[in-house]
Amino acid sequence: MSELTGYNFAYLDEQTKRMIRRGLLKAVAVPGLQVPFGGREMPLPYGWGTGGIQVTAAIIGDDDCLKVIDQGADDTTNAVSIRRFFAKTAQVATTEVTEDASIIQTRHRIPETPLVSGQILVYQVPIPEPLRFIEPRETETRKMHALSEYGVMHVKLYEDIAQFGQIATAYAYPVMVNGRYVMDPSPIPKFDNPKMHQNPALQLFGAGREKRLYAVPPYTDVVSLDFEDHPFEIQRWDGVCELCGADDTFLDEVVVDDQGARMFVCSDTHHCRSRRGEDA
């Protein structure tokens, strides 16, 4: 990829990166705590991962290898643009192979391939505050976090069961981190929640619009909230992936022809291809 001149390494200036890194250190020190940071304007609109990009820009180095996924796919517009952005502004290697990546920036999924120690998963977060649905005031939600006043999180789950007979929340399913802070895991499917628990990789979260950072350090407890008589459950499918036959992955329903025929396939495109022997 051709080198871009006139920009600092990874686009952000060094002072901003240091500021973000300080925020990240605090976030890692207090797992699940939302740390405010002075977010910068990025050359793309909010909702396209500006928070995740700033985190990635602050931690990426010459010898890193970057993978970017959007809904599990490496080849969507958003994922491709962000990968190109760093290939140009930081001249780093990029990959679609989960095992080869040192940094994985993600929107809406955690890779199926188990992550290992040394890898960093960077989440793009639209709404970092899990209490926002019930409490619009920032001063009040901060107080609720500080005092561990989390009863209302269960009120939300109670309402789900009362209305739908089960906990219907399927994405951004709230978790308790390290037994202390309730955290919004970003809009990943609850299918991925168990992967956050005791993960050997470092998990970093960046919310661009709301200018918040938070983190789950390696090997940290992450527990999905539930009721004794309505325990947390992940999504399940009747069938298997129609491309690779996997019966243990998150499946997307895709339309395959003009007649509206549909099939279920792995949402994690790299995982699916490697199971079919297509990736090295």
């Binding site: 019930i134 006043e149 209302v152 009120v155 109670y158 009721f227 309505h230």
Partner: peptide
Amino acid sequence: RLRISAGGNIGERLMGVGERHYG
């Protein structure tokens, strides 16, 4: 809480003191 059901309104204090059994 006007947008939460009557049951949720009553249950909130119970959940706030650690009650975790929906039934």
